[in-house]
Amino acid sequence: MFPGIEKNCRKFESELHLISAERKTILNSAAKAIDAQIDKNGVAKLIYICTHNSRRSHFGQVWAAVAAEFYGMSSEIEAFSGGTEVTALHPNSIKALETMCFQITSDSVGANPRYNIKFGSELSITCFSKVYEDSENPKQDFLALITCSHADENCPVIRGASERFATPYEDPKLFDNIELQDKIYLERAMEIGREVCYMMSRSASKKDYT
């Protein structure tokens, strides 16, 4: 794992006080569900879902892959993302990831290119915007983690999900093209990373989830 990304993971471990008790309860329940999936299938499949699959859900997918590696669970976790409609991975999201030491390349063009997001010399994940039911995502027995209120309210049923967890975050899109843009995108990416690492640490330690 790249040193800068590992440093962020260790920073998250020192910031658990920034996660509210209410949110920890949800993340503990998700950790328990992850362990149940691993016990049942040998692997837990997580799909992070928001409306456009361009910002928050990608942050969730990327950090889930990173946290799985950081906590020694990479063979037991598969991370995906999707939306209720297709757009593209937003340039501001890419910039925030690069600021956090991810290395990002793309060998495709068009309105919705695929990006290879590296977090180690031989560690990477592919990201592009897609609906959560895309052929590259699991179709059943997965855990759905909803990162925006709009998707949570408009998708009362996520077909194929064994369980769903609502962990909405403020949309950084609200700050596009203003002075605070880069700051807010980075804050949101770090907030999501902190909570994903907390969840994965609880699963890895197999504590009592309380």
Rank of each mutant, 00 (worst) to 15 (best):
P3H: 09
S124P: 00
A44T: 04
A31F: 00
I49E: 02
D208A: 11
I178E: 13
E191T: 07
E133F: 11
S74H: 09
H52C: 08
N28D: 13
D182T: 14
N53Q: 11
T84H: 08
N112K: 10
E153I: 07
K206D: 06
P91I: 00
I184C: 03
I38L: 03
N41A: 08
I184G: 02
S149G: 04
L16C: 01
S108K: 11
H58E: 14
F142Y: 15
R194D: 01
R114E: 12
E69L: 06
A30F: 06
M73Y: 05
F142A: 06
Q140K: 15
G82L: 01
S74V: 01
F119E: 06
I158V: 13
A111W: 05
R23S: 06
K207N: 15
K130Y: 15
A111D: 14
I19V: 12
I47L: 04
C101Y: 15
D152M: 03
H17L: 10
K139H: 15
K206I: 13
E85S: 02
F128E: 12
E136I: 15
S93L: 11
Q181P: 06
E85R: 10
S74Q: 09
T210D: 15
N112L: 06
F59E: 12
G82A: 09
A68S: 05
I104H: 04
K45H: 14
H90R: 14
C127S: 15
K95C: 02
S20R: 05
F142S: 00
I26T: 15
C101D: 08
K7T: 10
L89S: 04
T51R: 07
N116D: 15
R202I: 01
Y132R: 04
G193M: 12
C127D: 11
Q103R: 15
V62R: 01
T87I: 09
P156M: 07
C148H: 04
F175P: 10
E179N: 14
F175G: 02
A31R: 03
L16R: 07
L16M: 07
C197K: 14
F142G: 03
D107P: 11
K207G: 15
E187L: 12
K40C: 12
G110S: 04
G4S: 12
M100V: 04
C50E: 08
A166N: 15
G110N: 13
